[in-house]
Design a protein around this nucleic acid. Structure first.
Ligand code: NAD
Ligand code: NAD
Lengths: 271, 271
DNA sequence: AGCCGCTTGTGAACGCAGGCACAAAGTCGC
DNA sequence: GCGACTTTGTGCCTGCGTTCACAAGCGGCT
């Protein structure tokens, strides 16, 4: 049971010679996946959406790829390419209509409907998530909370009473839960995950530091703070080794403030 | 890279092994940089470390790349390549000595020393982070808390009294803070970040959904839950479109596939 | 002692993502 | 109505990261 996606170990499909022989003709077996959006692009679309929403609230009606790319902290060419994956909604010589683009990005991201969220494990983190109002504001209302602790059952957190995890099947069905958030101790994560999946949840956001085993049709995203810190630690260590270079005085003003972006260090693109 | 989510990629150097790479480089800037560990590999090393630590606690003394790769949820070839970045510590025909490997990974990740963490913004999330005992257990003790709310100043959270953000310079220096965690509202994030950087903090973990502007020598990692959810939403929507083909309800022990992104997964639960 | 099988370490191919640069396309001004 | 300017959309090239496949190396078995 090797944790490995598709292929078995030795697929003898193409007996063709591995040695380099530039094969001209043959098409690379075009899948029926006509519109495949790179995963990395999807993540950025979410960032663009936040920047666009902010612009919209400011009354901005049109934005160029250059402006938007600065707000999102990415390269403008990359932004245009990302947007091209979802269609051609820009106007050459003008830019993009903010409203239209918001609609299209939301369509692609599946945000035209609400996605009810269930949080399992109402401890430190679960409480914070339940009380967070950034999710409902973005189409992800938290509508169910679960725990095993008898003292918590029935207690409202963030306005929602905690249910027992045995009620997962029922509640998930009733409230049309599409996203399950796991905030239990690591030891309980897999079991909780299994229960959620059995109840029909196809999206899991996991905060427990374990690898979850799920069927292929279930999507898992993981947030691992310890790993994030260790990556930071690595960079510190590396920096300490390399001779310290001169430190350029940072710019006095920052100004451009946008929204999230990938976890790159603070490099700002040039206009 | 991201999480989640996409991932800033940046080659980084490590002070590990001799150069010894007879590569017919056509690189213009051939620095004497020894070897570069891909950012993605660094993230996975943290995962391997957790798996190795667990194995060690179970008394396992030796592990093969195959076993470890399963525990970490990755391809075994990838695991070997990742480990090769930090040196050759395996024994052919046998595998890796768990203790030795833990030591080497910790060395590369800079975990031979403790990294004191400061959390800024002791609200919902800040409380959870301050109370979390998973950090101290991994060499990241939270030793300082900051906020602006007068009602919070002096109140101990997770055993540590909250300081006012004006005390950042002093406290950061006194307690040798190396990592700053931003858990303030988005509007305050940039200012808090600037203060931390001014105080000498070179690593930032940001939970606020904004792009932080920092000097080049500061490393920023971002955790953006809304983006994670939107990525999940995207996959639901996409599945709904083309999903009408076949619904493979087969595989009970699904592969830990998940995102194809740079984000990596944690480890697997022991049976 | 020598062979055999297992596992590592890595060269090389492949595929994806990023970024440049430009043609296409539309607008604005005159 | 036409030209010049602006900005999009994308072809192509580059480089990184992943994966395959195998020779080298090591321990154990006979
Ligand atoms: N607190 C943080 O800031 C933080 C940070 C990073 C990661 N995490 C991870 O998030 C998870 C939760 O952390 P926490 O600090 O909130 O822990 P916690 O101990 O405060 O809360 C865990 C909650 O899960 C409940 N629980 C236990 N077993 C359960 C089960 N089988 N089904 C349902 N609920 C169950 C407990 O009753 C408790 O309420 C952990 O895996 C932790 O590693 C937390
Ligand atoms: N709560 C969550 O589960 C969650 C989830 C995802 C993202 N976030 C993000 O994390 C951040 C914090 O969320 P929260 O729910 O804890 O918010 P919160 O409002 O509960 O807490 C914010 C805290 O920051 C403090 N603060 C405000 N301005 C400050 C300043 N200038 N300097 C120092 N402290 C300041 C406030 O006094 C408060 O204690 C937000 O950016 C939010 O978007 C939170």
């Amino acid at each position: 049971m090797v944790a490995e996606p598709g292929q078995g170990d030795e697929v003898v499909t193409t007996p063709a010679e591995p040695p380099a022989v530039p094969h001209p003709a043959d098409e690379p077996a075009v899948r029926e996946r006509a519109r495949a959006i790179p995963e990395a692009a999807v993540a950025r679309l979410a960032i663009y959406l936040r920047a666009l929403t902010e612009l919209s609230e400011q009354g901005v009606g049109t934005v160029s790829s250059e402006e938007l790319s600065i707000a999102a902290g990415v390269n403008s060419a990359k932004l245009r390419k990302d947007l091209s994956y979802i269609g051609s909604y820009g106007t050459r010589g003008v830019g993009y209509d903010v409203g239209v683009l918001i609609g299209q990005v939301e369509r692609i991201l599946g945000l035209t409907r609400n996605h009810s969220v269930a949080v399992v494990g109402i401890g430190n983190l679960g409480h914070a998530l339940a009380n967070y109002n950034g999710f409902p504001g973005r189409g992800f209302p938290v509508t169910a909370l679960f725990d095993v602790d008898p003292d918590l059952i029935g207690v409202p957190v963030g306005g929602i009473p905690v249910d027992h995890i045995d009620d997962i099947p029922q509640v998930v069905a009733d409230r049309d839960i599409t996203i399950g958030v796991i905030a239990t101790p690591p030891s309980a994560a897999q079991e909780v995950c299994d229960r959620l999946v059995s109840a029909g949840v196809q999206c899991i956001l996991n905060f427990a530091p374990v690898v979850l085993q799920v069927p292929d049709h279930v999507e898992v995203r993981k947030v691992d703070l310890a790993v994030e810190m260790q990556i930071l630690s690595f960079h510190v260590a590396r920096r300490a080794d390399e001779g310290s270079t001169e430190s350029t005085a940072a710019g006095p003003d920052g100004a451009v403030n946008g929204t999230g972006m990938s976890e790159v260090d603070g490099m700002v693109m040039r206009p």
